[in-house]
Nucleic acid binder design. Sequence first.
DNA 1: CTGAAAGCGCTTACAG
DNA 2: CTGAAAGCGCTTACAG
Lengths: 354, 354
Amino acid sequence: MKSGDGKPTITDVAKLAGVSMKTVSRVINKEPNVSEALRERVSQAATQLGYQPSVSARSLAGMRSFLIGFLFGDPGGDYTHRVEVALLDRCRAAGYHLMVEQIDAAASDVAARTAALVAQLRLDGVVLTAPITDHRDVLRVLDGARVPYVRIAPNSDDASSPQVRIDDRRAARELTEHLLGLGHRRLGFIKGDPWHAAGRLRYEGFVGAMQDAGAPIDPALVAQGSFSFESGLLCARRLLEHSPAPTAIVASNDDMAAAVIAVANARAIRVPEQLSVVGFDDAPIAQVVWPSLTTVRQPIASMAQMAADLLLARAGSRNGAAWPQPMPRLELDYELKLRHSTAPAALGLAMAAR
Amino acid sequence: MKSGDGKPTITDVAKLAGVSMKTVSRVINKEPNVSEALRERVSQAATQLGYQPSVSARSLAGMRSFLIGFLFGDPGGDYTHRVEVALLDRCRAAGYHLMVEQIDAAASDVAARTAALVAQLRLDGVVLTAPITDHRDVLRVLDGARVPYVRIAPNSDDASSPQVRIDDRRAARELTEHLLGLGHRRLGFIKGDPWHAAGRLRYEGFVGAMQDAGAPIDPALVAQGSFSFESGLLCARRLLEHSPAPTAIVASNDDMAAAVIAVANARAIRVPEQLSVVGFDDAPIAQVVWPSLTTVRQPIASMAQMAADLLLARAGSRNGAAWPQPMPRLELDYELKLRHSTAPAALGLAMAAR
DNA sequence: CTGAAAGCGCTTACAG
DNA sequence: CTGAAAGCGCTTACAG
């Protein structure tokens, strides 16, 4: 037992176990070449003293900081939070800690913030979510500092870093095909941010499905949103005021789909009897609006975990040199969630009267 | 200009500026007793080299780590994320970084996780949100390690640490009085977690307002929820099946209030014409449900900022010894948000027919 | 399989 | 107002 008031150090553990500092270090780092007897003796001493290795000392002396960074863009967002919790999970399991930083993509100090994070903390790796995944200044600073990073659902598909994503294009296609299969022909679409990968890909999937089905796309029924509920409100009003009105609307995310339902409710347009609506993400809001949203569920936690694992594997390797080749590009499965916001077209008032 | 590939260190800056390491250190830490001329010369050299002080070196050598921790409980949650972004803001402004950790209150390794966070990283301070604010193991570890912490909306009102909150009891009272003022007498209430401060206080406020108004509380109209949308669903069904049904329902948060609206919609009970509903928090869902929710807005960002500032002020002080006395207990203003989910009682079908 | 020495980049405590 | 020395708690690189 240590009597002083300071925290026990590696020296204290070494003394108690009757070995050198270096042996304790080997045990802590799970390095090979330690006899089982010594390993056991050291572990016991560490536990007995409540020894916790100092991250700053390890970071200063060694080649690892045991710190992973998470850089996100949006100030709000359930998506971001879910990614974070999943990252936390993997980091903890690997003995790493998670630093977070928010980057306002439009701010002028983007490079400075990124630099402060990686240079002051010597991060072993960084996880990026859209739209920061494609911010030139951020990527330049990370590349310059040689900090490994993994991008979740980036816009550009280049091979400069590993990425984790779902096939947004195909998911949007399936969603659209679901509506076409219900007999809808006159479909509206609400786009997301154009510089956001998901926004672009989801629109492409919609267009592909429509073309394959020979269904015309009325440009008046395509509105430019920005993923926010408010932008969905504006777009929904525009689409629903158009004549003839669409019988179904595909929104690029659930927030905007929920906005469509809100506008429909306010105008006594019955969903899904008179108007089918689909969203994307399976955000909490999808099950909370009435009727609940048919949408696409992304495996957010799995995506984040894989991102973390890629980084942790590289940080843990003794050389830590480079990414495996070919560059990892993980594509996870999504899931179509059929709920209550979609119904056959032209069922009209018969069903509405149920 | 440094030619090597490593990052510039304090020594490089000192050489370039023609001063000692110690002088550079003084400038970086904004310590007094440096002539203006030298201060300027050092600043320029640092900028020229792109010098970033190593957090681990500073942490190891000095008495500060420049790291603040954020401990939260719930795996999801807009509230948590908003707190985090606000903390990030203040930390960055002060040259600090933010570490996050999630604690599952029911898990067995709560103490270990907390210990790992504070002992390995030597955190300069920790911010806690409910319900972790009142977790015995967490507090014991923090106290034992002498890590200063600030609690946001804790349950217990003891003076062991600073706290930041709104007056939940008074807010719930005002919300209830708003309904009573609209002529409602038969009110239902959906409680939150009993061991969660806000849950208890909001119920007390409700009871107080009812008693003062001489309105009886029907125990059959008080349901025990747990802040989740799902629990709100169950409670709402129970309350609305009761006869005579309530004309208004107070839910302890917006998620549960939204659930009440969902159940009402599903049963063709018109809100607010036949049933008034109020929530608490002004979460995003409040403006997204139809009709939008009358609720109480908490100044979440301000609360988090004040929590961070308390910690940063103490970490920055040279002695860093203790909290100011009396222990800070900051109570911020809330705001009643009157929206579309409340209307006069007994307006009945006249209004419903509009 | 084990260990003694040097050093990571800073700050502290002390001199002047 | 300025600086030289020692040391924070580890890991690296090297011996044995």
